[in-house]
Simulated assay, not measured.
Amino acid sequence: MLEKLNNKLELKTVILLFPITFLIHDSEEIITMEKWVDSNIAYLYSVVPKRLQFVIESVHLTTPQIAIAVFVEFIILFFATFMLLRSLCSGVWLIFFTALLTMLFINVFTHLGQCIAFRGYTPGVVTAVFVSLPYSLYLYYRLFKAKLINWRTVTISFFVALVLFPIVPFAHFIGRTFV
């Protein structure tokens, strides 16, 4: 089955699906986040330790604020995808792109962890499991198969992803500021 998919989709096409995958996943969050947080705010404050309650405030955004935050993240992701497709070689753009892919992959498990912690649906979990997870695994597979990445690249990308993580709260800040 993978070989049939590989034959039908060029690697550049699979890479180009990254921004689309991101938008599908984050659309679920845009649609559901505000209502879910508003409905669960008291419960969130009761179960989240006081020292971590700033996280609740960071995700307590209106739908337009979330949309702006997602737009900021999308621009960064689209730029990284564009730059990688221009060169499709090793180097800084491959590391940057793979770090963003790593963030998407890890995000699946944060959504699953949230569902377990809150014993039910949390915004973004459906598309994380059914869109982001299979896509990110397939893209990793294709990048390995093309010998564009190896385990060293993935390890470096993981640490770059940790450094890039502040993009998310920065995007939330932009959303809060402009709406």
Rank of each mutant, 00 (worst) to 15 (best):
E3S: 11
L5S: 07
K8E: 15
L11R: 07
L11C: 06
L11P: 05
K12A: 03
K12S: 05
K12W: 03
L16F: 11
L16P: 13
P19F: 09
I20Y: 08
I20G: 08
I20A: 13
T21A: 10
F22H: 02
L23N: 15
L23Y: 09
D26W: 07
S27I: 02
S27T: 06
E29K: 09
E34S: 05
E34H: 03
E34W: 09
W36Q: 03
W36T: 00
W36Y: 08
V37C: 00
S39W: 13
N40G: 06
N40P: 00
I41K: 13
I41C: 00
L44R: 06
L44P: 12
V47S: 09
R51N: 15
R51M: 12
Q53I: 02
V55Q: 14
V55L: 15
V55P: 04
V55W: 10
I56T: 05
I56E: 13
E57V: 11
E57A: 14
E57N: 15
V59D: 06
T62I: 10
T63H: 13
T63D: 11
I66L: 07
I68W: 00
V70G: 03
F71P: 01
F74W: 13
F74Y: 14
I75L: 03
I76Q: 06
F78P: 02
T81P: 03
L84F: 06
L84C: 03
L85E: 10
L85A: 08
R86A: 12
R86S: 14
S87F: 12
G91I: 06
V92E: 11
W93L: 12
W93T: 14
W93C: 09
I95S: 08
F96W: 13
T98D: 02
A99R: 07
A99P: 02
A99N: 02
L101S: 04
T102W: 08
M103I: 13
M103Y: 14
L104N: 15
F105N: 00
N107H: 11
N107G: 09
N107A: 11
V108Y: 03
F109E: 04
T110I: 13
L112T: 13
L112P: 06
L112W: 09
L112M: 10
Q114T: 12
Q114P: 07
C115T: 15
C115A: 15
A117L: 09
A117C: 08
R119E: 11
R119K: 14
G120Y: 14
T122Y: 12
P123D: 04
P123A: 00
G124P: 00
V125Q: 00
V126A: 14
V126F: 09
A128P: 04
A128G: 07
F130S: 13
V131R: 07
V131L: 02
V131H: 05
V131G: 11
S132R: 06
L133V: 01
S136M: 04
L137E: 04
L137A: 06
Y138L: 13
L139D: 05
Y140Q: 12
L143M: 06
F144K: 05
A146W: 11
A146T: 11
I149E: 00
I149D: 04
W151F: 15
W151V: 11
V154R: 02
I156H: 09
F159L: 08
V160A: 03
V160T: 08
A161R: 01
A161W: 02
L162P: 01
P166H: 04
V168E: 02
V168N: 06
F170C: 04
H172C: 00
H172K: 01
H172T: 00
F173I: 05
G175K: 00
G175C: 01
T177G: 10
